[in-house]
Simulated scan of single mutants.
Amino acid sequence: MSADRVVQLRWESRRVAAGGGTALSYAGISVIRRRHGEIVDRVWVPVGEEPTFADDEALIAVLHDAWRWSRPAA
């Protein structure tokens, strides 16, 4: 990993207006890419209480892409 490119993972909830003055809250993982301390990308992946295979694969793909980005070019 390069010192100028950092990947952070953060457990976060998102609130979504559901109409009628109500809101729903969804748990998820934010994958944050920083270059020289500045955020350059943020992807939030929802994580349900009973994640499906597709949920797992989506998270793996986002993590794989972020960690490949954090490695210096060969």
Results as ranks from 00 to 15, higher is better:
Arg35Gly: 07
Pro46Asn: 11
Ala27Ser: 13
Pro46Ser: 14
Met1His: 05
Leu63Lys: 04
Val7Arg: 03
Trp67Val: 00
Phe53Ile: 05
Arg5Leu: 10
Arg15Asn: 13
Asp41Gly: 12
Gly20Ala: 13
Val16Gln: 10
Trp67Pro: 01
Pro51Lys: 03
Asp56Thr: 12
Arg68Lys: 01
Arg10Thr: 15
His36Leu: 09
Asp56Glu: 11
Leu59Gly: 01
Ala73Gln: 00
Arg14Phe: 03
Pro72Thr: 00
Ala74Ile: 00
Ala66Arg: 02
Glu50Thr: 14
His64Ser: 09
Val31Thr: 14
Ala58Tyr: 01
Arg71Gln: 03
Gly37Asn: 05
Gly48Pro: 04
Val31Ala: 13
Leu24Asn: 14
Ser13Val: 14
Glu38Asn: 09
Arg5His: 12
Ile39Pro: 02
Val40Gln: 08
Ala73Trp: 01
Val43Phe: 05
Arg42Met: 11
Arg15Cys: 12
Trp44Arg: 07
Arg5Ala: 07
Thr52Met: 03
Met1Gly: 11
Ser70Phe: 02
Val62Arg: 08
Ala73Asp: 01
Ala58His: 03
Gly48Asn: 07
Gln8Met: 11
Val40His: 07
Pro72Cys: 00
Pro46Glu: 14
Phe53His: 03
Gly48Ser: 14
Glu38Ser: 10
Ala18His: 11
Ala74Glu: 00
Val6Glu: 09
Ile60Leu: 11
Arg5Ile: 09
Glu12Arg: 15
Leu59Pro: 01
Ala23Phe: 06
Asp55Leu: 02
Thr22Pro: 01
Gly20Asp: 14
Arg5Gln: 12
Gly21His: 10
Gly37Glu: 08
Asp55Lys: 02
Ser2Cys: 03
Ala73Leu: 01
Ser13Met: 14
Tyr26Lys: 13
Pro46Lys: 08
Glu38Tyr: 04
Ser25Ile: 10
Arg14Asp: 06
Arg5Glu: 10
Trp11Asn: 15
Val6Ser: 04
Asp4Gly: 02
Ala3Asp: 07
Thr52Ala: 08
Arg14Cys: 05
Phe53Thr: 05
Pro46His: 09
Ser30Glu: 14
Arg5Asp: 10
Val47Arg: 09
Ala23Asp: 10
Gly28Cys: 12
Ser30Gln: 13
Ser2Thr: 05
Gly21Arg: 09
Val45Met: 04
Ala61Gly: 04
Ser70His: 02
Trp11Val: 15
Glu38Arg: 13
Leu63Glu: 02
Met1Cys: 03
Asp4Lys: 06
His36Phe: 05
Ala66Glu: 00
Arg14Ser: 09
His36Gly: 09
